[in-house]
Amino acid sequence: MTYNKMVCDGFELNYCIKGHGQPILIVGSSIYYPRLFSQELSQHFQLIFLDHRGFGKSTKRPMKQEDYTLDKIVEDIEQARQILKLDNVIILGHSGHAFMAMAYAIAYPQHVEKVILLNTAPTNSQERQQQSISYFETHASAGRKKQFEQDIALLEQDIEQDPKRRFVHMCIRMGAHSFYDYTFNAASMWEDVDTNMEIIDYLWGVAFAQQNLSQLVHQFHKPIFVGLGKYDYLVAPVALWETVDQVPHVTKVIFEKSGHNPMFEEPAYFDEQLIQWIKKE
């Protein structure tokens, strides 16, 4: 897999391309996300993994908040589309990146054929985050809760040793909230992934808290796939998405044996559902 680099307004963003066919633009980390999607999927589509500024290298010092607004992320995606000479794309956003994918689709509907939103809550507000924590405390098994207590106790030490990768450490130590197999250690998925914490803190803490995806899907009248994991306690409960059940252009799939990463946890079924939906007229 070959990595390429583009520069957007002082940020070096890497991207890599895997497979051939209809392009799916996957926004996030070009290092992390190729590890989650199956080889089988790349035999059906051209998967384009694109960094955003939270995972890119900044040549700007110091950065200002206007350097990493959601609008700036959207413009980076548009610049990438132009560089890659893509006309219509399917855009995919997983977790917090779903907010980026939806924002791009709203801003540039003429270049988006379909939208895939995976394992995200409709909003990242403090109220919703507390709702997810309460759901975990009420519904998680005793074994899952015990595993979480053991893992999260190590987070402070992780951050002290390597504060620049605080986001990565948190993702790893939240494994009991993230995976159907709550004993799974995701550390290898995050190897060599660097983060700009100033950007990530703003996007996840402020920008995404101001968005409501369940409302935005009504504004984009093209097919939207919403994929959710039954055991994804990070953005629980799946009932948060019941409001889109009657929206004709939205297809919602709940993966019964997945947490936050059904493309990794149930790859065959995930691929089957996604391929079927994309090829559906």
Score class of each variant (00 low, 15 high):
Ile224Leu: 05
Val250Asp: 12
Phe255Ile: 00
Glu265His: 07
Pro223His: 12
Asn261Lys: 02
Gly259Ser: 09
Tyr233Cys: 07
Phe255Cys: 04
Phe220Ser: 11
Val253Asn: 04
Asp245Met: 09
His260Pro: 04
Gln219Met: 10
Met263Gln: 13
Pro267Gly: 13
Val238Ile: 15
His260Asn: 14
Pro223Trp: 11
Phe264Ala: 14
Val247Thr: 14
Gly229Trp: 08
Ser258Ala: 14
Val253Cys: 11
Pro237Asn: 03
Pro237Gly: 06
Pro262Ile: 00
Gln219Ser: 14
Ile224Ala: 01
Met263Gly: 12
Val244Trp: 05
Thr243Val: 03
Val235Gly: 03
Leu234Met: 15
Glu256Met: 13
Val226Glu: 02
Met263Cys: 14
Gly229Glu: 03
Gln246Cys: 03
Tyr233Asp: 00
Phe264Tyr: 15
Ala236Asn: 10
Val253Gly: 10
Glu265Tyr: 05
Pro223Asn: 09
Val247Pro: 10
Pro223Glu: 08
Gly259Pro: 02
Lys252Glu: 04
Val244Asp: 05
Ser258Trp: 07
Pro262Gly: 01
Gln246Leu: 11
Ile224Arg: 08
Ser258Val: 07
Val238Gln: 04
Gln246Ala: 14
Pro237Asp: 10
Val253Ser: 05
Ala239Lys: 12
Val235Asn: 12
Pro267Tyr: 11
Glu265Met: 09
Lys230Gln: 12
Asn261Gly: 10
Phe264Trp: 14
Ser258Arg: 11
Ala236Lys: 03
Pro262Thr: 03
Val250Phe: 09
Thr251Lys: 14
Pro267Thr: 07
Lys257Asn: 14
Ile224Pro: 00
Ser258Cys: 10
Val238Asp: 06
Thr251Ser: 15
His249Glu: 02
Ala236Gly: 09
His249Tyr: 14
Leu228Trp: 13
Ile254Trp: 03
Phe220His: 11
Phe225Ala: 06
Glu242Phe: 05
Gly229Asp: 02
Lys257Asp: 13
Ile224Trp: 01
Val247Tyr: 01
Glu242Lys: 13
Asp232Glu: 07
Ile254Asn: 08
Gln219His: 12
Phe220Pro: 09
Met263His: 11
Ala239Val: 11
Met263Pro: 10
Ile254Val: 15
Asp245Asn: 15
Ala236Arg: 06
Gly227Gln: 10
His221Thr: 12
Gly227Val: 09
Gly229Pro: 06
His249Ala: 07
Leu240Lys: 04
Glu256Gly: 00
Lys230Asp: 04
Tyr233Lys: 02
Val238Trp: 01
Glu242Gly: 00
Gly259Arg: 08
Ala239Gly: 05
Val253Asp: 05
Gln219Asn: 12
Glu242Pro: 00
Val244Thr: 07
Thr251Leu: 09
Asp245Ser: 14
Thr243Gln: 12
His260Thr: 00
Ile224Val: 15
